[in-house]
Nucleic acid binder design. Structure first.
Length: 297
DNA sequence: ATGCTAACCTGATGGC
DNA sequence: TGCCATCAGGTTAGCA
């Protein structure tokens, strides 16, 4: 579930169903799913087993589970098609099940309520995502894994620095959508929410960042936060069963999208058909009337 | 130093 | 029915 709202939906599920439980066993069924864990699958399993899982955290599209009693965290990235599912142990394996994590309380007396008897599964069709174990940044209050120290804070983080973001945009010689997708400038924004926020701000995706005024950047940030908050309230955006919460349920924000995926459909502001343009091996959706292209440089 | 492309995967879909 | 090309919500190594 690639973008911030979808990952946050998963984080909330993990907090409810996984945090506080103790790992009984780890089974890695596909080595690619732990390729970011340099010491390999056996090491990953060994170091995790026996430890209690702390409060699930997130920055941008990354989430992690602190490993209590060891300065470690399980870092997770869902890539394009990853899912973290909390499933009953007797549920048949999913076709693309990559990692299974069992807990000491299951099966067992319902000490943990509905969570008892469930396990955590990492399912990933395209294997762009994965889990890994990493040390934490010394002094970081939330146990930030060291390998994602370069990832910028996300726009829903209270510590996100709006002024610094604007200064960074002015310094860059790139275009606004590229900047929004650059996770070292602002994290959590992907192709869907970039297009949605640009549509709401009436900005063309190829607008040079150096031409943005401070008020314009402020508007853009406000719209990013607004669309992400709206999506979160709807349970995230799903076009198909690949993007689901830990219980396998899809969000329904896709019906509220104004630009993304709406090629040839009327702009909800002015009625002009939304256009799709090939862009960086993917697509950009925009309203040609509301979002005028910048002057050629 | 910075910006950009190609590559990493599997599966769904549409045209011929 | 099959084959091929295209597309999909992300990240990163490596090149210019």
């Amino acid at each position: 579930m690639p973008e911030l709202p979808e990952v946050e939906v998963v984080r909330r599920g993990l907090r409810r169903w996984v945090s506080g439980r103790t790992v009984a066993f780890v089974e890695v069924l596909h080595p690619r799913a732990v390729r970011r864990h340099p010491a390999g699958a056996a090491d990953f399993a060994a170091r995790l087993t026996g430890h209690r899982i702390g409060e699930a955290r997130r920055r941008g599209k990354y989430l992690w589970l602190p490993v209590e009693g060891a300065d470690l965290a399980v870092l997770a990235h869902l890539g394009m098609s990853g899912q973290l599912l909390v499933q009953p142990q007797d549920m048949p394996d999913e076709k693309h099940l990559r990692i299974r994590i069992g807990f000491t309380d299951s099966p067992g007396p319902a000490a943990l309520g509905e969570a008892a008897g469930t396990e955590l599964r990492f399912v990933d069709q395209r294997t762009f995502g994965g889990l890994s174990l990493h040390g934490t940044v010394p002094g970081a209050e939330d146990g930030l894994p060291d390998v994602i120290a370069h990832i910028a804070r996300d726009p829903l983080d209270p510590a996100f620095d709006d002024a610094a973001f604007h200064d960074a945009l002015r310094r860059r010689r790139t275009t606004v959508k590229r900047a929004l997708l650059d996770q070292s400038l602002i994290s959590g924004v992907g192709n869907i929410y970039a297009d949605e926020a640009l549509w709401r701000t009436r900005l063309h995706y190829e607008r040079p960042t150096a031409t943005l005024t401070r008020p314009r950047t402020a508007e853009l940030l406000a719209h990013i936060r607004e669309v992400m908050t709206d999506a979160l309230a709807a349970g995230g955006t799903s076009f198909d069963s690949l993007y689901v919460n830990v219980n396998g349920e899809s969000g329904y924000f896709s019906r509220s999208l104004d630009a993304y995926g709406r090629e040839d459909e009327p702009c909800r502001r002015c009625g002009t058909p939304i256009r799709r343009r090939p862009w960086m091996n993917r697509s950009s959706y925009f309203c040609p009337r509301c979002q005028r292209p910048p002057r050629p440089r």
